[in-house]
Design a protein around this nucleic acid. Structure first.
Lengths: 148, 148
DNA sequence: ACCATAAAGTCAAGTAGCTTGACCATCAAT
DNA sequence: ATTGATGGTCAAGCTACTTGACTTTATGGT
């Protein structure tokens, strides 16, 4: 592997990831959810199954818990999540999605499927599947929110 | 393609891209270049062949020219680039890499080759090649500096 | 040749999202 | 019961970015 090929792969990877995030975000906006940034989507992904604490969210996003708390404030203000008392720990609070929060999560799923579908048209479904599995083997533990 | 699979692909793509950027950055630091952020590397990539104007750089990075100008200021202060008069346009200034700038660029190439080499150990060279070509066909025009 | 418009760059001020630091309430282990 | 660790918030500060205003030089039409 020559250096220039490694750089070409890096650039292609960044371009693909950037374009995907952009398209998902546009799809979400097109479905009527405004005032959100991609970072909020990363948060929704963590909150989706059963909710999470602010600290969980901070770890997931790779930021301080103060930053995660501010992000939750914002989502509460916009009606996408709410803070509920934690069933097992009186210090903690469980942040869960509201109705609009779930709707937005579904919209993001749809937008993602749409964006990836466009790739299937170019590569074919089999190769897209191969792509996903190769990436999963490469970076199973990569940061969710790459910061740079 | 189901929605959940699209999200899995998105997550894997982001994780891989994030990890790659992180590793390249660490490799650059390990080679003795400090005080730099990944964004500077994206700038180097544009400056590498023959230099570029601040406006070129701004377009490449997807930021305002003021932001690009500030970034150049910083790189000048740290000795990685210098501003030279533009040969064809007295308004413009050509930003070019200095010796240390070139050395840092080579270090980044090496670090990238190292990181991608680790992937080859997992996937095999052929599949990594396939990955690169699939990504290039998917997102030839993606943003260099995904912002989120 | 002249003027109007556009483009390259910089200075200055404001902003948004993050950080560090300090603090309180609660948990868990001795 | 005491001590240290953990979840969360408040407050202040930092930094990379933005918008706005301006100067200098290029470009194109008349």
């Amino acid at each position: 592997m020559q250096n220039s090929e490694a750089m070409a792969l890096s650039a292609a990877l960044l371009a693909a990831a950037g374009e995907l995030v952009q398209r998902i975000h546009e799809g979400v906006v097109a479905r009527g959810f405004e005032g959100l940034r991609p970072a909020h989507g990363f948060a929704f992904a963590r909150l989706a199954p059963d909710g999470a604490t602010v600290t969980d969210l901070a770890v997931h996003l790779g930021v301080t818990k103060q930053a995660a708390s501010q992000l939750v404030d914002e989502l509460v203000r916009k009606g996408y999540v709410e803070r509920r008392p934690h069933p097992k720990d009186a210090r903690a609070r469980l942040v869960v999605l509201t109705g609009p929060g779930w709707a937005c999560t579904r919209a993001a799923d749809e937008a993602a499927a749409e964006a990836v579908g466009a790739w299937s048209d170019v590569l074919g479904e089999a190769e897209v599947r191969g792509l996903r599995e190769a990436l999963l083997r490469i970076a199973p533990e990569g940061p969710v929110r790459p910061a740079w």
